Computed example of a mutant assay.
Amino acid sequence: MSLFRITRTLPEDATGAALRADVLGGLTRSPKTLPPKWFYDARGSELFEQITELPEYYPTRAEREIIVDRAGDIAAATGARTLVELGSGSSEKTRHLIEALTGLDTYVPVDVSASALEQAGRALTEAHPGLHVHALIADFTAALALPDTPGPRLAALLGGTVGNLLPAERAAFLASVRGLLAPGDALLLGTDLVKDESVLVPAYDDAAGVTAAFNKNVLSVIDRELGADFDPGAFEHVALWDARNEWVEMRLRARTAQTVKIPALNLAVEFAAGEEMRTEVSAKFREEGVRSELSAAGLELTHWWTDAEGRFALSLSEVR
């Protein structure tokens, strides 16, 4: 019997339907917005991997440092027999946790990409004979049903991904995660921390222009999937620090006045010269704020670890 299986919880056309709904809703409001999840087609994922290696982009290195240093502490604190990773992608960083969790029985990676789940799942079952991998093709921000696996469970959302959610969305997400967990279970959460603007903005506006290409790639996705006629070259990448909300915003700014046609939606979208469309929010956090948000969701922060430079944090919280 194979120790690897994939369960699809998303309908076959769920991704296409969600893209159509997000583009229609986002481009007909003012100011215009697009959600960041549409960056990540094959090309976008490749560009993001390049971003993680850039000198300006510290979060991936900082989080990996914490995981490597603290994997044993996380294992000792949780005794997890099931690890559920939300937005697992390649599962690369999680391998350190899997090695440290000596009593681990089951790994449940959750992602919208079937190909990423297949590749990571096969590799993990080969590297860890006896580990059950039950992958879920699912959107972790929507209602999620986990397979029946042994407890205690450790749910993990890494990479600072929680910062891409607006405050109300974060509250709903954390409450939904709490609903998946039982007493004795825990949540491991990666959060990028508030720091000087001179460090934050270059992480989203690198000198080599890789993040600019990543940002514009969302237009190519809409062109390909919805038959639109966006010209990525007609937009420029913008990254700025919003000190009031303590988040970095990525935007695309129209270089000229233009009309974009999206045949799949029977939609024509007008852009004024200089008009900006928000494509991502990346919130930055403070320990007291994370503690408060977790508490509101019914979780108690019990451990807080940062990298040596205090740029990024991993928190461990338990069901109250």
Results as ranks from 00 to 15, higher is better:
E249K: 04
S2G: 11
N164Y: 11
I67Q: 10
G184F: 03
L294T: 04
V68I: 14
L158W: 05
E169C: 01
E56W: 03
E126L: 15
G233I: 03
M250V: 00
E12G: 06
L294I: 08
A114C: 14
R291K: 11
A186H: 11
L252E: 01
R286T: 06
Y40F: 11
L188I: 03
S292Q: 14
G72L: 03
L181D: 05
P263G: 02
T82C: 12
L158H: 08
F285V: 05
F140S: 00
T191V: 15
P263L: 00
A142M: 06
K37F: 11
F140M: 12
D139K: 09
D148F: 04
A80S: 06
N215G: 02
G130A: 12
A283Y: 09
G163P: 02
L174A: 13
T302S: 15
D73P: 01
V177P: 04
A268L: 06
L83K: 11
D206E: 05
D111S: 08
A272S: 14
L34D: 12
A296I: 04
E225V: 04
A208G: 11
T302Q: 14
V281F: 10
R29C: 10
G298Y: 00
H237R: 04
S282W: 01
W247T: 09
E65Y: 03
F285H: 07
R224I: 01
A208F: 08
G163I: 06
K284L: 00
S220H: 14
S90H: 08
R64S: 14
P147N: 09
D185E: 12
E99R: 15
A80H: 03
A17Y: 04
F48E: 10
T256I: 12
E99F: 10
L86R: 02
G310I: 03
A116Q: 14
A228E: 10
V218Q: 10
T94W: 12
R178A: 13
R244G: 13
E300C: 11
K216M: 02
F230P: 01
A18D: 15
P167E: 13
E287R: 13
G121Q: 00
R81N: 05
V201H: 07
F4S: 05
A273L: 09
G103A: 13
T302L: 11
D205R: 12
S91W: 02
V290G: 02
G44P: 07
G16F: 02
M277V: 10
R8F: 10
S282V: 00
K261V: 15
D139G: 10
L101R: 06
L314Y: 10
F173A: 10
L158V: 02
K93E: 01
P129W: 07
D111N: 07
W305N: 04
A186L: 00
V210Y: 11
R244D: 13
E197Y: 02
A308W: 08
L97N: 09
V68Q: 14
A114M: 15
F4L: 13
L86V: 04
L267Y: 05
E309A: 13
N266L: 08
L252H: 06
W247H: 15
G79D: 09
V281I: 15
A156K: 07
